[in-house]
Simulated scan of single mutants.
Amino acid sequence: MDEVLHRLEGGVSWITLNRPEAMNAVTWEQREHVIALLAEASADPAVRAVVLTATGAGFCAGADLRSQPPATPTAPPAPAPAPRLAGDVSRMIRLGAQRLITAVLDCEKPVIAAVNGTAAGIGAHLALACDLVIAAEGARFIEVFVRRGLVPDGGGAYLLPRLLGPQKAKELLFFGDAVPAEEAARLGLVNKVVPADGLEGTARAWAERLAAGPTRALALTKQLVNASLDSDRATALAAEATAQELNMTTADANEGVASFRERRTPKYRGH
């Protein structure tokens, strides 16, 4: 059984975690597959939006700490673990959880998280890194790290203060309490909460709207918003002007202006 399901449908790349028996705890193979699919979405003009979701009762229960890179003909199975050295853990996090989260943040196409169930640890960060988050009514978000005596990784201490402000972020990170979908929506972590049987349909409707939009303008808008959180005003305004300069070279921008002048609905082609 494929641990990551993928299909391209109507300009939308559907990426589905598929280890329901493990609440979709992310393995090494799944992580690398998702990262590769997000990179492909950025490069493929046929992809104009992405939906990230999962099968079963959980969205993602975090990282599967038991998983290891697969053996290959040129790389035999790893020997018994050697004593941990200084730098080993930080390297593992940089090359693992952080690469997964930045792959979502840096994807040039808008990414929707369709959260079908519990999103814990890196699973919560995977959802919150997406551009839009739709959650089923029974979904929960849990900053589980503190329960294990760990520091949040995978961008948690970066994402949460920007979404919630520092005080509320510290509350979630310090206590590790489960946040139900409705509360997550009230806090601004989730855009929309829907019944479980309406999750895929809502995600499809939103993704199809994005896929029919001006793809390059959306990519530049995503880049501007993400960068603005770490920029001063002058830098943000300069980036905005440059982005608009670049965008005005696209066919979709010309179509948008022409359709306004001609009082008709624009037909965007994604370039």
Rank of each mutant, 00 (worst) to 15 (best):
E3S: 10
S13E: 11
R19I: 06
P20L: 08
W28G: 00
L38T: 03
A39G: 11
E40L: 09
E40K: 12
R48P: 08
A49P: 05
A49T: 05
T53V: 03
A57G: 11
G58Q: 00
G58I: 02
C60H: 00
G62L: 01
L65G: 10
L65I: 10
S67L: 07
T74Q: 13
P79I: 06
P81C: 03
M92S: 14
I93H: 07
L95T: 14
A97D: 14
A114M: 10
A119L: 11
A124D: 04
L126V: 05
A127L: 05
L128C: 08
L128F: 13
C130A: 12
V133Y: 02
I134H: 02
E137H: 08
F141C: 01
I142H: 04
I142D: 06
V146I: 15
R147G: 05
R148Q: 14
V151K: 14
G156I: 08
Y158T: 11
R162I: 00
R162L: 12
K170Y: 05
L172F: 12
L173Y: 04
L173K: 00
D177V: 12
A184W: 02
R186P: 00
L189T: 02
V190S: 01
K192Y: 12
D197W: 02
D197E: 13
L199R: 04
G213R: 01
G213I: 01
L218Q: 14
S231P: 01
D232I: 04
Q244H: 11
T249H: 09
T249G: 07
T250M: 09
D252R: 04
V257H: 08
V257Y: 12
R263L: 14
G270W: 03
G270M: 04
G270C: 02
